[in-house]
Amino acid sequence: MKSATSFKRLLMRGAALAAVTFATASCSWLQSLDKDQTLDWSADKLYSEARLALDDSNWTQAKDYYQKLEARYPFGQYAQQAQIELIYATWKDGDAPGAVQAADRFLRTYPNHANSDYVMYLKALATLNETDSWFNKLAAEDLAERDANASREAFDTFKELALRYPDSRFAPEARRRMHGLVLAQAEHELKTAQYYFVRHAYVAAIDRAQRVVREFQNTPMRDDALELIAKSYDALKITDLAADTRRIIELNKNGERSQPTR
């Protein structure tokens, strides 16, 4: 009986020891997981690994390495280049507002940097994507108006790029995108005017269509906007203004016909 009791105690002691050993091993394993593998990396190592992640489209990993490089070696040889590539990785990782903020911060800090044109180009692209962020999805402002605001801000950035750096390799693309944004904004305003018209909000339709005529008179949407204005005046029984608007349409058409062919 005594030997059985001793054996039982021995088993219990062994189980307790095994539990302690397992717990210790588990803690060591978890600590090894929590340890930052990059702690001993040099600036060269961090930058090269960040570039590899960037080339592999592993945007989140690239961001992590660039941020650590910036924090640990803020005045090293890779500091400024890492900030530029971090802007790109942030944008590609889906954080457009963060990319815009990082671009603005870089341009304030290094206004005469050799790659400022590229940073401005990235900022404009990220601005166009800002409306897809989770924050803007929660905002109470009108979605269509927010899209128009983003387009105008991007246009201004592209314009600044083209004016400040006319010989930049990004200038032709900036000008092309400016032209596309003008057409897109004009179409947006025209569609908004048409939206109001079909809902019999004729005063609002006239207001938005007049904006097309006023701000986008060199686009194909101008004459459609004028026709919509005339139809809205017809609906409001303001026949004299409807007639005046149609005379403008005819004058525009006659002026285009009289233009010499090239």
Rank of each mutant, 00 (worst) to 15 (best):
R51L: 14
Q81E: 05
Y73T: 00
L30H: 11
A62Q: 03
L46I: 04
R72W: 14
T38A: 04
W59L: 09
Q37E: 11
A71M: 05
A25D: 14
T24W: 05
R72C: 11
K63A: 05
D36H: 03
S32Q: 13
L30M: 10
T60R: 15
W59T: 06
D34W: 13
C27K: 05
D95R: 06
W91Y: 15
A23P: 04
D40R: 04
A43Y: 13
D95K: 08
A53M: 13
A82M: 10
D34F: 12
Q83I: 00
T90Q: 02
L33T: 01
A62R: 02
A23M: 14
S42R: 10
R72A: 09
L39P: 03
A71N: 09
S57E: 15
A71V: 04
T90E: 01
D95Y: 14
T60D: 15
T21F: 14
W41F: 10
G76Y: 11
A18F: 05
L52G: 15
W91A: 04
D93I: 13
A62F: 05
F22C: 15
F22W: 10
A89G: 05
A89V: 08
A79C: 03
Y65P: 09
E70P: 04
Y73D: 01
G76W: 13
D44M: 09
T21A: 15
L54T: 00
K63N: 14
D56R: 10
Q31L: 06
L54R: 00
T38P: 01
D34Q: 08
Q80K: 04
S26P: 05
A82E: 09
C27W: 08
Q83V: 02
T90N: 02
T60A: 15
Y65H: 11
T24P: 00
Y47S: 02
A50Q: 03
D36A: 06
Y88M: 08
G76L: 06
E70A: 07
K63E: 12
D64A: 09
F75E: 07
T90L: 03
D36G: 02
A89M: 11
A23V: 06
L30A: 07
D93C: 12
A79V: 01
D56T: 01
S42F: 10
I84M: 06
I84P: 00
A53R: 12
L30K: 13
Y88G: 00
Q80H: 04
S26G: 10
A25Y: 11
A23Y: 13
F75S: 06
A96W: 10
A79L: 04
F22T: 14
D40H: 03
A43I: 13
G94C: 06
L69V: 07
D93W: 14
A18S: 14
G94R: 07
A89Y: 07
Q83D: 10
L54I: 00
Y73I: 00
F75N: 03
K63P: 11
